[in-house]
Design a protein around this nucleic acid. Structure first.
Lengths: 190, 190
DNA sequence: TTAATTACTTACTAATAAGTAAGTTTTTAG
DNA sequence: CTAAAAACTTACTTATTAGTAAGTAATTAA
């Protein structure tokens, strides 16, 4: 039962995330959102009183998305490589849609965010790192993956490759992201 | 012969870079700069007519800094590891001064930058990547470094580790950056 | 020493920002 | 069908933004 309200709220949330990832938190306004959605400024404030509330909801929705992915991945009877590629493909989509990852976007704005928002961001980051860490462990156990560092450290290395990879792709081109993505997998699979 | 002008202009440039790296391009104003330096708003506009001019000058100064480092490194009779660590220490300093790297900061704001500025950014990025690439090649030749990918790809991987590493450190703490930094060196030196 | 150039300040503007109070329309539940 | 709750719009306010025009002070060069 999708009410009109939920549609509008959801649309604001999606557009907000898009803008944060495309131009950054401080480079768009509620007026931009209102204009694009054909609603009035105050309607955005109705759903998200302050810009920080919008930000927080975006982080929340990412937390719930990655939680869901984590649950699905835990049980899925597929190779660890396929599981990892599911996360990789999310990053490739970012490159294609002119975005950077939420975590990278947030890191840039981090010093201007309220404390409450910050702690949710920490949750999100740890969630993603853990997800990759577990997949790496699974792959090693399987004999699919080879790496010498700890799974946690390897997760840090891979996620920083991906996160900065999409950022770099903005500047030097999409090909560099593909290069990075493929060489991570190559190194991992020996 | 450091005139008063050069002092002011240089101070604006340094503070501008600090702010871009700390809070991002759209989260500070000329008024912020003026206030901190004890000058008037219009004085900032005198030296850098538009905010984009300031941005461009900051990129320019980074280009000249890295060009200088490149020249020094090319001739220095020190191990490749020491040369690489010089770049690494720049990134460690960022973490300690609550900044992210210029390239990462710029990547976040990239879509809002004018074309002229963008092309300078490309120059800067390629410069840094090339610098690391050459150092990696030298280290491999020396027998100091071990890596299987091409030097260019290895440079991409290391620079994305560092760039996103300082960003991650904002969120999950400084220790994660140290972990990343040390494991890059460990993997490289076998 | 004086004329010109450089480095500013004062005093604005026009645009846009986030946010709110009060009223209106729409939806939903009984 | 109706009342009340939800989802808006209209119409503001206050603050801040980037930027400029015109004037003044300081430095430099002839």
């Amino acid at each position: 039962m999708a009410t009109k309200t939920n549609d509008t709220k959801e649309a604001i949330l999606l557009l907000g995330a898009e803008l944060i990832q495309q131009v950054g938190y401080h480079a768009f306004s509620y007026a931009d959102i209102a204009k694009k959605l054909g609603i009035k400024n105050a309607a955005v404030h109705y759903h998200f009183p302050g810009k920080a509330d919008l930000y927080e909801s975006i982080v929340d929705s990412h937390i719930s998305n990655y939680t869901k992915i984590g649950e699905e991945i835990a049980q899925a009877p597929v190779p660890a490589k396929a599981k990892l590629e599911r996360i990789f493909s999310r990053y490739r989509n970012l490159v294609d849609s002119d975005r950077i990852c939420v975590i990278g976007a947030i890191a840039a704005d981090y010093k201007t965010l309220p404390g409450k928002t910050r702690s949710k961001v920490v949750t999100l980051v740890e969630l993603v790192l853990k997800l990759v860490e577990k997949t790496l462990q699974e792959g090693k156990k399987n004999g699919e993956f080879f790496y010498t560092a700890s799974a946690r450290v390897q997760s840090l290395l891979i996620m920083t490759n991906l996160s900065a990879g999409v950022q770099l792709a903005r500047i030097t081109g999409k090909k560099d992201f593909e290069t990075i993505r493929l060489s991570i997998l190559k190194q991992l699979t020996g």
